[in-house]
Design a protein around this nucleic acid. Structure first.
Length: 267
DNA sequence: AATTTACACAACCGCGGTCCA
DNA sequence: GTGGACCGCGGTTGTGTAAAT
């Protein structure tokens, strides 16, 4: 005999999460921690499967997530790690604190792939695109100027791919890599990076969900949801979320240090 | 102003590895 | 040792929004 069945999929809600669902999930995890996802939806009063809850939490609600686009240096790290690891997004993400595998994967597919191609680099192999392909492209519709641009950028790319990661490492080293979780929390909830809404738009879900709460999950303002929980008074901590046992949360902010291999460790 | 197209990203699906009874 | 549930990962799809026509 194995374990109990995960979750019967009958009657489970799918699609974008509403603000009220987010609230329930945050509330539950705050109280109970993220022990076993199978039980979360039932106990939190959500008509979702545990898998969906886990995904929502890890990819969107987790307070240690950075928001906004990847920085240049983060992009370079992703490119370099991808050349070594391939599509192992979770491994790549583990080297970028505050970033999720899903986020990196999306960013790769929508931004970096194009960028590399534009630079004349094959995103799969990280090698310069074949001369055959190039000449084909050239014959197709490359005006002279664009050709020149491509060649110039290719040179830049070839050198940057090899050297930028080292530059980034040096830059990171320079900043001594002392990490203040409280500051990180503030930064990760920067209103610059989160769509602002007017006070009268703030969702205060009642027992019945409003029509606005059924809009895209992307439009849910996580700040407001967290605010509703008075989370600014709660000391969100990096590293906290890796701990399965939330009863053992240490409210003393840990000092985080970035290792040479870009992994965060507590002091 | 209305419609179409392109883009960005959240969420889902299915698979493989691990764990547990 | 075995079968089945759980978890995490990577690929893919769906949806909302912005830009173009």
């Amino acid at each position: 005999m194995g374990r109990q069945p995960c979750c019967d999929k009958v009657g489970l809600k799918k699609g974008p999460w509403t603000a009220e669902e987010d609230k329930k999930l945050i509330n539950f995890i705050l109280i109970n921690g993220q022990c076993c996802w199978r039980a979360v939806p039932k106990l939190a009063g959500l008509l979702r499967c545990g898998k969906s809850c886990r995904l929502r939490w890890t990819n969107y609600l987790r307070p240690d997530l950075k928001r906004g686009l990847l920085s240049e240096s983060e992009e370079q790290i992703v490119i370099d790690l991808h050349s070594q690891l391939g599509n192992r997004w979770s491994k790549i993400a583990s080297n970028l604190p505050g970033r999720t595998d899903n986020e990196i994967k999306n960013h790769w597919n929508t931004h970096i792939k194009k960028k590399l191609r534009k630079l004349g680099i094959d995103p799969l192999t990280h090698k310069p695109l074949s001369t055959i392909e190039e000449s084909h492209q050239e014959r197709q519709l490359q005006p002279q100027q664009e050709q020149q641009e491509q060649e110039n950028s290719k040179e830049v790319a070839e050198t940057s791919l090899e050297s930028t990661i080292n530059e980034v490492m040096r830059e990171e080293e320079k900043s001594t890599l002392m990490f203040d979780p409280m500051e990180a929390m503030i930064n990760s909830f920067s209103t610059d990076e989160v769509p602002l809404i007017e006070p009268d738009e703030i969702l205060v879900p009642s027992s019945s969900s409003s029509s606005s709460s059924s809009s895209s999950s992307g439009s849910n303002n996580i700040n407001n949801i967290l605010e509703e929980f008075q989370l600014p008074d709660f000391e969100w901590q990096l590293g906290l979320w890796d701990n399965d046992d939330f009863t053992s949360w240490d409210l003393d902010p840990p000092r985080m240090v970035l290792d040479q291999d870009y992994s965060w460790t507590t002091m």
